[in-house]
């Protein structure tokens, strides 16, 4: 039986005489309310009236909000001052470098033409030529970095804010886990295989990650059951996602994106490496597993864009060689 507006309005009257309604009747009322704007508006007024009766103790406070605004303004001013100071220092440093006379310099030396940079730039070291310990650490760290980025994109559809927060957390987790990778390689005797250390590191990473879930990044692998390098240029991870075990096979990180390798190749100190990591992590690294798989041609140029501004001319030349750009 169809309900008339009068029937529904009677049901909406305060007093509760309408309840309990049968399921069928309730569906009819709901359907009527969704169809009839007048009755729907009555319901809205009823809801607004009921909520207005909810006592509000202290409302929002203008002085408190003004205080928040002042604090934010102070913070911005401070950041601006720090930025200006940093720019000033950089300018002073550049000026000093340009103006100072080289030690032992003479008029003759001024006339001497400086050799072009690329003639004095050493070739970046080949991975195979590095000591075994360093080589293992580079390979293992590269896997963890890439896998953490995979976690962000596996099934997840993060909001921009969550994506930002995930990236920040993931970088901190990566830094924590790489400390463990190094100590595991250094301490264990007999020396463990790279694959065993990497498997432990991956499990450490997802365990830490799962302790602070984000609302829109809730599909994370629960365990890594196997890891290997099937070829020198690819990595294979067996992981449990949901109740199933899946196998992920993707290309490994190219050297110009591998932090441990970059540290050696560029001769970078920890502070510079931290800046390089942050710059790459929040730009080229995002969706990197998929980009590598698709052989995305923008990876090289974007890496240059992210890293070159942080480097000295000599390091820039080395990095260009690594990326394969003249």
């Amino acid at each position: 039986m169809d309900l008339s507006c009068n029937d529904v309005r009677n049901l909406l009257e305060p007093g509760g005489s309408a309840l309990p309604l049968s399921d069928e009747r309730a569906e009819q009322v709901a359907e009527h309310l969704d169809r009839c704007p007048d009755c729907d508006q009555r319901l809205s007024r009823r809801v607004a009236g009921a909520l207005a009766a909810l006592p509000v103790g202290a409302g929002p406070s203008l002085p408190a909000v003004r205080d928040l605004i002042r604090r934010e303004q102070r913070r911005s001013t401070l950041l601006r001052l720090v930025g200006l100071a940093a720019a000033g220092l950089a300018l002073a440093g550049t000026g000093w470098t340009l103006l100072r006379v080289p030690p032992g310099g003479s008029a003759a030396s001024k006339d001497r033409v400086a050799p072009p940079i690329d003639t004095v730039i050493p070739e970046p070291p080949k991975l195979a030529e590095l000591p075994e310990l360093e080589r293992n650490i580079i390979r293992s760290e590269g896997v963890v970095a890439l896998y953490l980025q995979f976690c962000l994109t596996c099934i997840n559809n993060p909001t921009d804010q969550d994506k930002q927060e995930f990236l920040t957390r993931a970088l901190l987790i990566f830094r924590e886990v790489r400390g463990r990778i190094r100590s595991e390689f250094e301490k264990s005797a007999p020396a463990p295989t790279t694959e065993a250390v990497t498997l432990n590191a991956l499990n450490d990473a997802i365990r830490i990650l799962s302790t602070s879930k984000l609302a829109s990044v809730n599909f994370l692998p629960s365990k890594i059951t196997g890891f290997k390098f099937p070829t020198p240029d690819s990595m294979q991870v067996d992981h449990i996602l949901g109740n199933k075990t899946w196998r992920l096979t993707i290309p490994t990180l190219p050297p110009h994106l591998n932090f441990a390798y970059l540290k050696t190749a560029l001769g970078a100190n920890d502070a510079l490496m931290a800046r390089i990591e942050e710059s790459l992590w929040t730009s080229v690294y995002v969706r990197l597993p998929a980009r590598l798989e698709d052989k995305d041609p923008t990876v090289g140029p974007r890496s240059l864009e992210a890293v070159l501004p942080l480097l000295s001319p000599r390091q820039q030349a080395v990095y260009r060689k690594l990326v394969g750009t003249p």
């Binding site: 049901l11 909406l12 305060p14 509760g16 309408a18 309840l19 309990p20 309604l21 399921d23 069928e24 009747r25 309730a26 569906e27 009819q28 009322v29 709901a30 359907e31 309310l33 969704d34 319901l43 009823r46 809801v47 009921a50 909520l51 009766a53 909810l54 006592p55």
Partner: peptide, 19 residues
Amino acid sequence: PGAVYTRLFRALEKLREAG
């Protein structure tokens, strides 16, 4: 939708009775 209506109406009644 019927369950939503029932719950909404009950919630309104609870607020009305208590407030």
